[in-house]
Structures are given as C-alpha cells and as structure tokens.
C-alpha cells in the first residue's frame, strides 16, 4: 500500500529516546547550532508577532480584533473550518475504510489523489478548483466569489489529514475482535459502533485537529476562488495581508496572534490526545 505523505500527515508520537545518551561535546555543540537556527528562523519571528501585538496594549489589540470586518473574517474562517472538519471526519474515515478494507482496480490511483492536495501549490489548488467550480464550469456549478468557494477550498486542502491519520490505525486493527462480536450476534452497525469506532477515535480526533488547524490558516487557494469580498468571503489570513499591505503591522500582528493562539491550542490538544493513546498502549 502506498502512503506517500503518510508520515508527514500522521502525527508522530513524542519520540522514545532509544539510547538515552547524555549530550557529548560534539552533540551539545550541534544542539546549540540547531537551536540558534531554529530560534532565528521560527521562534524569534513568531515571538515578534506576539510582542508587537502586546506592545499595542490591550485596547489596541481588542480594537483590532473586534473591528467589524476582522470579526466577520475570523467568524467565517473558524466557522467554515469547523464545518469542513465535520465533513472530513465522516468522509476521511470512509475513505480510509475503503482504502484499507476494500481491494479493487484503481486503488493505487486513489491513494495518489489523496496526497495531491498536500503537495499541490495552494495557488494552483485555487486555479484547479476554479476550472471545475468557476464561471466556466462544465457542470454549470459556479461557486466563485461565494462562501461556498471558501468551504470548497478548505475541503480540498484538508482532504489528506483525517484519511492519513486513520488509515494506519485501521490497518493494524485486530480483525478477530470484530469476528468475535459478529459471531456473538452483533450486527454490522453494532460492531462498527462498539468495536471499530472506539479504536479509531483518537486517530480521528488527531486528524480532525490537524484539518481544523490547516483550514483556519489557509490563504493561497482562496486568492483566485473566493474573491475576498469584505464581510462576505474574506478570511482571516486575507485580513492580515491587507493590514500588512496598508503598512499597519500592529493591526496585522494583533489578528495574527489570534491565529497563533488557535494553532497553539490545536498543538496542545494533539499532545493530550497522543499522550492518552500512548498510555492506553
């Protein structure tokens, strides 16, 4: 079975130290250099966002975030991301199920299709969706510049997450327990609800969290597709960008801090889920 981006999408466990070695002089130096680079590239810049937001004071922060247009953008982004996550939980689990438990011609092609949204440049993703669901749609479905376009774009870019977290867990599931349940008279539905679903729940939750985080932070695929109409189809990332372009970095930093808080919450939630799974064995 091919799982091209599985490792990237699947959340990795907190690694077990296999050696538990103490740092030597060389490895200590390596860690220092790596931390310096990571700080310069990621930690200091992200800290600068929060610091700039804080420097504006609570009033400035609150004004930036509750501005009508910004509040509408945040609401649209979070609401659509939640909705898409619900769809992904259902469809992603179903897709993983078909990929693991079914065998048919063309399955490899489906495997590759799952990973396409992960590797495709987001601006290209927008153009791709526009060709089927835009003004020249061969289906006669034109969602461009509407809220449905935001939903569609989120649905496309978050496709791999639930599938790729559920798939490996489902593949390792012990079939004998299901057979035992069936032989004791459980219906297919009962078996699914009582045996399979509980086993998959942590993986589904982890995939849902990743897909929510990805949806909330999406930008590129919306540029051509949603029209970025204020109060209607403008998402949070677009709001931040227009603040940057108006040279209002304080405002941009305040709204960006909201997004960072959401990503942070998702990372913490993932860690909790992973630890609970780890404890269960």
């Amino acid at each position: 079975m091919s799982e091209a981006a599985a490792g990237t999408v699947r959340r990795r466990r907190p690694p077990a130290t296999t050696a538990g070695g103490r740092l030597t002089r060389v490895s200590g130096l390596g860690l220092g250099v790596a931390m310096l680079w990571f700080s310069l590239l990621v930690l200091i810049p992200l800290a600068a966002v929060v610091a700039t937001a804080v420097a504006g004071g609570w009033d400035g922060f609150w004004r930036a975030v509750t501005n009508d247009q910004t509040a509408a953008a945040i609401q649209l982004t979070v609401g659509t991301a939640l909705l898409v996550t619900v769809v992904n939980v259902v469809m992603g689990t179903l897709i993983a199920w078909v990929l693991v438990r079914d065998r048919f011609a063309g399955q490899r092609a489906l495997e590759v299709l799952i990973d396409v949204p992960f590797a495709l440049p987001t601006i290209v993703a927008g153009l791709v969706l526009l060709s089927l669901y835009g003004p020249d749609s061969p289906l006669g479905l034109d969602v461009a510049n509407s809220r449905a376009a935001v939903f569609l774009a989120f649905l496309f870019v978050t496709l791999p997450f639930v599938v790729r977290t559920v798939q490996p867990v489902l593949a390792e599931l012990d079939r004998e327990v299901e057979e035992a349940a069936a032989s004791l008279g459980a219906s297919r539905f009962t078996t699914f609800r009582r045996i399979i679903l509980p086993a998959l729940a942590p993986a589904i939750a982890a995939g849902a969290a990743l897909s929510f985080a990805r949806g909330v932070s999406e930008y590129g695929s919306l540029v051509l597709l949603s029209g970025n109409l204020p109060m209607q189809t403008e998402v949070t990332s677009v709001r931040i960008l227009s603040s940057i372009e108006n040279d209002n970095l304080d405002n941009a930093a305040a709204v960006a801090t909201v997004l960072l808080a959401i990503s942070f919450a998702v990372i913490v939630a993932l860690d909790v889920i992973q630890r609970r799974v780890g404890r269960r064995g």
Partner: peptide, 18 residues
C-alpha cells in the same frame, strides 16, 4: 511541528517584523 499549522501570511508577517 509549529510551522505546519501557522498561516503562511503569519509566517511572512513574522519574518517582516524581525
């Protein structure tokens, strides 16, 4: 894992601020 869940616009903003 943070870079995977940060909006690309926020990444750009963060780099501009520094």
């Amino acid at each position: 894992d943070v870079p995977l869940s940060v909006s690309p616009i926020v990444v750009g903003l963060a780099l501009v601020l520094v």
